[in-house]
Design a protein around this nucleic acid. Structure first.
Lengths: 206, 206
DNA sequence: CCGTTAAAGGTTCTGCAGTTCCGTTAAGGC
DNA sequence: GCCTTAACGGAACTGCAGAACCTTTAACGG
């Protein structure tokens, strides 16, 4: 075999998959701060030396987990109306954050991002991908003249998620379907008023 | 002295103040995950036994720090217009989150809240207080007929902060004055459209 | 199939966060 | 001012996360 070749196949891939799955389980059970790499190794039925060597720290492991999560994508909605699409998006985010496993996982990766630059980069990339996936909903609405031209599509999508993440991380208020619909409706109203146009400030209400 | 009396005065209060200040410094420097209670004790020039006995864990210490922070309040603005007031609020939040010390501190306490129930309760109380302080801006706007009756004042205030915290914790986008103004303007537009009325869904744009 | 070596695995060691123990200081009621 | 004891402080101890070391397994090129 050639010198210096890397070996991503077979066992290495199996080990990565097992460790990432175990890391997800452990994160959901204990949370970010109480995560022990040796415990992850035990769950994954893998030598703890391997986990320490390949990922080093809890944050490094979470960063890799996020990279993996970014690759699995969910299709965006296309209901024909902006409100319908954004409500679908808000409901998707809402269901994800409320889900015991997914919600705990997202809290954990967001925490990891505040502690480690690699995890932060992975997180920002993850959301950049998700936002780019949904931006076409807004672009279509602009083409349909539902929204003013020059509307920043990504900013509208972010505006839908923001109140839900605010509840998850900051205020602790319940993340129910009503909150999701309100988040979507607020984004539509603000976009309609021209708040998200690149030109700048809000346009007068027509 | 009576049996079982507690002693909050003198030395005890001095120790608490010194430890909370030291904890803030340490949080800003190392972040939540790398916080060592022994290091906090050293900075505060206090026995480490004291810190472990009174606060026990990092999360417990942060919870107390938050309780302390909730007591120091900043006055709300009163510019005469809803947009003016909410932009002032958004700018205040923006400046706080961008400030190296304050920003790091807020990230740390939010992280602590995801790890510990007491810290979570302290955080939610902190924001409940802040939101209640600014809610009158919205109530005034309703009285001035700038907004539809039945508008949920707290929800409007939360809507102003949400995009800024989303940037801080999730997307990593810059938290500049333009973002602050957009957050305020979006909240105004959505509130104006009736998204935050207790009645429910959005009212038709007038 | 074989040889090379990248990558995983097992075991032992170590530093330090967190605990325990006991002596010291000073808050506050009389 | 005195006494009781809540609360602080220093030092020695301990358990375990993470490092170090060496052995074993299996991926991949020929």
């Amino acid at each position: 075999m050639a010198v210096g070749a890397i070996r991503p196949g077979g066992r290495t891939a199996r080990v990565r998959a097992a460790v990432l799955r175990a890391a997800g389980d452990a994160l959901v059970e204990h949370g970010f701060d109480r995560l022990d790499l040796a415990d992850v190794a035990r769950r994954a039925e893998v030598g703890k030396t391997t986990v320490y060597r390949r990922w080093g720290t809890v944050a490094g492991l979470v960063a890799d987990l996020l990279t993996d999560m970014a690759e699995q994508s969910l299709p965006r909605a296309d209901t024909g109306s902006l409100t319908g699409d954004l409500r679908a998006n808000a409901r998707l985010v809402q269901r994800t954050l409320v889900d015991p496993r997914q919600g705990a996982l997202f809290r954990a990766v967001i925490v990891a991002a505040t502690c480690d630059p690699r995890a932060a980069e992975a997180l920002h990339h993850f959301y950049a991908v998700r936002i780019a996936e949904w931006a076409p909903c807004v672009e279509q609405a602009v083409r349909r003249a539902e929204l003013p031209p020059g509307t920043d599509a990504a900013e509208v999508i972010r505006a839908v998620s923001a109140p839900l993440y605010y509840r998850l991380l900051v205020s602790g208020d319940p993340i129910d379907e009503a909150a999701a619909d309100r988040a979507a409706d607020a984004a539509v109203a603000a976009a309609h008023a021209g708040v998200y146009t690149t030109a700048g400030g809000p346009q007068p209400v027509r």
